[in-house]
Amino acid sequence: MGDHALEVNNLSRHFGELIAVDGVSLHVEAGETYGLLGPNGAGKSTAISMIAGLLESHGGTIRIEGEPMTTRTTAVRSRLGLVPQDLAIYPDLTARENLRFFASLYGMGTKSAKARIDEVLEVIGLSDRADDRADEFSGGMKRRLNIGIGLLHHPRLLILDEPTVGVDPQSRNAILESVEHLASEGMSVLYTTHYMEEAERLCDRIGIIDHGRLMAEGTRRELVASLGNQDRVSITATGPLADAAEAFAALDGVAEATTSEDTITLLTGDATRVVARAVETADAHGLTVASVEITQPDLEAVFLHLTGRALRD
């Protein structure tokens, strides 16, 4: 066991026939930012709800700093800060009133809450709008207030469930900077997202989740390395793609060839060596090439490799 900020073992949950989370195990080290990367419907929010003690699990255990977390445990929640995916604020209260309300629920005294609320307002950049009603805020400001509530009580573990969904680029950047700032201060963070670039930017380690299962985890470097340093060559063409697939797979240096409706994707150790012969092969099989795209491996490629589909599918 030990003192991981978070330790999840074999966590499961189903809704009727649908298995939403299927034996997920992961841990977050103290001071680490862990990203749970997966497309919509992968099971991220369900897993988060169980980790935050909001949803009964159907199997597995959750420990926060060694303390078990279930829907019935209360005290351990003071170590946890949750920023849910959907805005969970009262729109008809001011930013300060929202923060004050949740500060009281975290058991903070009036005096300490007052000082902390001012600090949090500063962190989330809402000091000058503290006494305005939340329903007068822009979407980004509401998101920042949503995050601020999770920070109030100096949580040991901050859980952010897709905090940038539906946010403009400027606010999104501000939110990411806030998370970087918190991480730099030593806060443990569990961050779910379906944006690969957010996971790459923020997270020390990343778990890739799909259909409720944790497919792989590691640092970005480790995950990419697991692909065998493969480049990806995507040839968009018209013609009998399926007939040509075997010929592409047989090309020297091509590890794998997959076809979709109008694209053949080749995985190779060195794209520059393969691309010319790939175009020739296409030509030889009567394909009309519209475009050729070479991409270096990234988390998107890892996800594609692991699941056979893109993150945004």
């Binding site: 935050a52 003690g53 909001l54 209360t74 005290a75 351990v76 929640r77 003071s78 946890l80 949750l82 849910p84 959907d86 805005l87 969970a88 604020i89 009262y90 729109p91 949740f102 629920l105 975290y106 058991g107 509530i149």
Partner: peptide, 17 residues
């Protein structure tokens, strides 16, 4: 409204029974 807004659920994530 509180339920729909997710505030009640969020209240449950605090150390409040």
């Amino acid at each position: 409204q509180s339920r729909k807004l997710g505030v009640v659920t969020r209240m449950l994530s605090t150390p409040t029974s």
